[in-house]
Design a protein around this nucleic acid. Structure first.
Ligand code: MN
Ligand code: MN
Ligand code: ZN
Ligand code: ZN
Lengths: 138, 138
DNA sequence: CCGTTATTACGAATAATTCACAATAAGCCC
DNA sequence: GGGCTTATTGTGAATTATTCGTAATAACGG
């Protein structure tokens, strides 16, 4: 079996670089991380990498569909490797903690817009806002 | 019947100012407008108003619950006067056009995550991404 | 009409992200 | 493996959206 991440990068028509491998690697341990956090993490193995390069790498990987970007209100963009399943997120309105939530498409009255006014809807993005377990004690 | 917007501002515990009335007034004609668009609009009746003041006004009105702020991915914050009904939005991924989508349930949270991992969910924010009628012809 | 205090204006600062362009290195051909 | 082409990265600056500190102004209660 070949190196999985390298393979997926190449298959996406992109060149395999140390920076891209490092970002993918870092993302494994920290789902829903922002660019700066990823930069700090990647720096441990790739000390010279620039923040701007992390931005570029994340942009390329996102566009290639290898990672997913979410942009919660009031937060910088977050990235994750879990893709292809259109899952949703619960976000703590107090501390910003992010939890994956499995797609609720089955029993979801609000996910079928009765009147989308002619929109050709491709995806339904759901964000649950509330308090995480830790923040409920306060 | 008294002046409706002034009344609601006062009831919220805020002072009634020309700037706040002007922003609310502008918002009537342009739902889902961003701060700069509102600034341009308000300037027509209040030439001296600063962009920063529009930011402050929008912040105060939002915090008071008199208007609602949405922050779609890739867009500056948008504001609207339609509040209290927990409605959703269809957004064109190409041109950014925003359409209101009625909530089938009507009250928050209209959806329940299958597994929220202990989150106390207060609202479910749903955004439908797709192509608006105009952009489908392209 | 006065005084208190919230609100606005002014100027600058910050946070997140993008851009232009030169330096580097991946992948391909030989 | 060595060179060539071109994608990618690094460098430095610019941009966009928003916030902050503080002085000037104006709303509202008395
Ligand atoms: Mn996720
Ligand atoms: Mn709306
Ligand atoms: Zn929390
Ligand atoms: Zn459109």
């Amino acid at each position: 079996m070949t190196s999985e991440p390298a393979e997926s990068i190449r298959t996406a028509g992109l060149r395999v670089t140390a920076q891209r491998l490092a970002v993918l690697g870092a993302l494994d341990g920290m789902p829903h991380a922002d660019t700066e956090a990823l930069h700090r993490a990647v720096r441990r193995t790739l000390p010279g990498i620039t923040l701007q390069s992390v931005y570029v790498v994340l942009g390329a990987l996102t566009e290639a569909g290898l990672i997913r970007r979410i942009e919660p209100a009031g937060s910088p963009a977050l990235y994750e490797r879990r893709i292809g399943d259109n899952h949703h997120h619960a976000i703590c309105s107090r501390c910003g903690a992010v939890q994956d939530v499995d797609c609720v498409v089955g029993h979801a009255p609000c996910l079928h817009p009765s009147d989308a006014a002619g929109f050709a809807v491709q995806t339904a993005e759901v964000t649950f806002w509330g308090l995480c377990p830790a923040c409920q004690n306060a």
